[in-house]
Nucleic acid binder design. Structure first.
Lengths: 242, 242
DNA sequence: CGCACTCTTGATGGTCATCAAGACGGGTGG
DNA sequence: CCACCCGTCTTGATGACCATCAAGAGTGCG
């Protein structure tokens, strides 16, 4: 059930059998949500964190005119709102992009397991810091990349993050969002997303069709994006206490 | 010495006398840096975190063409790189915007005090999550706000964050950066920053002259920015264990 | 079969970038 | 002390990128 989550954690840190058992024991409930449902609204009090088991979710904020900006995409194995453990209420909304299955982890349980296992406290703190690193890369994208390299960068990021949990290979991955949602990630309009997708396709870099991203030239795509996966902190990280 | 830092922490959480003493004891060294020095380079191994005592610093990333994007401004009392405690190496650079005085806190010391005081672990985890919340607001700005409201939003944020440590009132605060650095925060060129500043000045909202921001109409400025300080999590937060 | 939504493409325009040049101001050295 | 120099600020002219408006095609669903 939480295999994606464990795969994600174990890419970077050692998780003992006892720690794994503690994480499994922290889940209070499994829930299913339909697509396009805002499951957490900015400002509301929250008593649990949401672990994404299947599907895609995102964090978004919006302005009064209704312009929506997505700040992060969540893939299976991610906590969508681990940061609510310390923040209690969020400054953004959390939305399902597809039908989703999630596991709820009450903050009280979270507290128990991080007190019992300091390594888990470290690993989960790391995890929220990784979210922040992804935010910074998006700040760079939105501030300094043009539409093409911005979209390329998004596809590169997703390819890596989905590959970690076995949901992407080098050539393709499912990405069941529409062009409107893509635009909301990239700070563009859906019209311009459409044209940018065409350019990427015509340059034989990547195609986005039928809810699937097909990468025709990964190196070329990464070059266009100036993609450096360092911000995703892949591979073994320094352990707690080392 | 770390009074700004304590003020910042105590705005949101209770810090006991013993905890305060532990924080004070964790500082290993005080250093001074000149303006415009990159004190931490992306990718290098780090064994300590840097607490900003005086001056302004920022986090930035850049592209190969040299285009620089600032992701966050640090004000006195902030840790510039508390997240390096779990990340060890950073995905971005840290730069002094002015001459700065900092206190170094070795990660080993940090570990000692958060193990001794779980409340401090919670408070510092919160602190890195607050950085992420600021990143998200910048994502919204860069993705969906135009130049005027983007700049207004930045000034609103800084006014609040500086006021927390007593370095701003409702009317003005020192902000010793140039228009180039402002542009690097806002994803604009310095030329357009110059024109946008003129508009804000002509509308009697805010003026930026002689390294100082003078707010003529705070309500109006906040309206232009659609500024909602909720993302800064002002005021008392839920305590650890409640 | 019809409706609603997304996708696609064209036409036009606005915001912001780029290029350029002069003004201003602070620091330095003769 | 003044001249010079360099970086920043300011403004103008032009253009690129992306938004907006609009309309037809495609697709899935009731």
């Amino acid at each position: 059930m939480i295999e994606y989550h464990l795969a994600r954690l174990r890419l970077r840190h050692d998780i003992s059998a006892a720690e794994e058992a503690a994480i499994r024991g922290a889940v209070s409930e499994v829930r299913d949500y339909p697509a396009d449902r805002t499951i957490i609204h900015a400002g509301e009090q929250i008593g649990h964190s949401t672990l994404l088991l299947e599907g895609l979710m995102c964090r978004y904020k919006d302005l009064r005119g209704g312009e929506r900006q997505i700040a992060e995409i969540h893939v299976p194995g991610d906590f969508a709102d681990l940061h609510s453990y310390t923040l209690k209420r969020l400054d953004h909304n959390i939305l399902t992009l597809t039908a989703c299955r999630v596991a709820l982890v009450p903050h009280a349980k979270l507290r128990e397991i991080i007190e019992a296992f300091p390594n888990l406290a470290f690993v989960y703190w790391f995890s929220t810091n990784l979210d922040a690193a992804i935010h910074r890369e998006w700040v760079l994208s939105l501030g300094r990349r043009n539409a093409m390299s911005r979209m390329a960068a998004l596809f590169c990021e997703l390819q890596v993050r989905l590959a970690i949990v076995g949901l992407a290979d080098e050539n393709s991955f499912e990405f069941p969002v529409d062009q409107i949602e893509l635009a909301e990630c990239l700070g563009l309009t859906s019209v311009h997303v459409n044209r940018t997708l065409r350019q990427l396709r015509e340059q034989n870099l990547v195609a986005f069709r039928d809810k699937r991203v097909t990468v025709h030239n990964l190196d070329g795509l990464r070059r266009v994006a100036e993609f450096d996966p360092a911000y995703l902190y892949l591979g073994r990280q320094s352990a707690y206490g080392s």
